Computed example of a mutant assay.
Amino acid sequence: MFHLLQSQRRRDAIRFLRDKDEPVEMRDIAEQVTAWENNTTVQALSSSERQHVYIPLYQSHLPKLDEEGVIEYDQSRGTVRKTPFAAQLERYLDVDEESTDEDDVRRWDTYYLSISCVGTFLFLGAALNVPLFALVPGAALIVLVLSAFWIVSV
Rank of each mutant, 00 (worst) to 15 (best):
L4A: 14
R9W: 12
R9P: 12
R11T: 01
A13I: 03
A13S: 15
R15L: 14
R15W: 05
R18W: 11
D19G: 13
K20M: 10
K20Q: 15
K20C: 12
P23G: 13
M26Y: 11
M26H: 15
R27T: 13
R27S: 10
D28P: 03
I29P: 10
I29L: 13
E31W: 08
W36S: 04
W36C: 03
N39M: 08
T40G: 11
T41F: 01
L45F: 05
R50K: 14
V53I: 14
I55G: 13
P56R: 01
Q59S: 06
Q59M: 01
S60Q: 05
E68H: 11
E68W: 02
V70M: 06
V70E: 02
E72C: 05
D74A: 06
D74W: 08
Q75W: 04
S76G: 04
R81P: 01
T83R: 11
A86M: 03
L89Q: 02
L89K: 01
Y92S: 09
Y92M: 09
D94N: 09
V95D: 08
D96K: 12
T100P: 05
D101S: 10
D101R: 14
D104M: 11
V105D: 09
R106V: 15
R107N: 14
R107M: 07
W108M: 12
W108Y: 12
Y111I: 13
Y111P: 11
Y111M: 12
S114E: 09
S116M: 04
C117N: 15
V118Q: 03
T120V: 04
F121R: 10
F121H: 14
L124Q: 13
G125C: 00
A127D: 07
L128M: 12
V130H: 06
P131M: 06
F133M: 14
A134L: 03
L135C: 03
V136R: 01
A139H: 05
I142R: 15
V143Y: 08
L144D: 00
L144Q: 03
L144K: 00
V145Y: 09
L146F: 06
L146N: 01
S147V: 04
A148N: 01
W150V: 06
V154T: 13
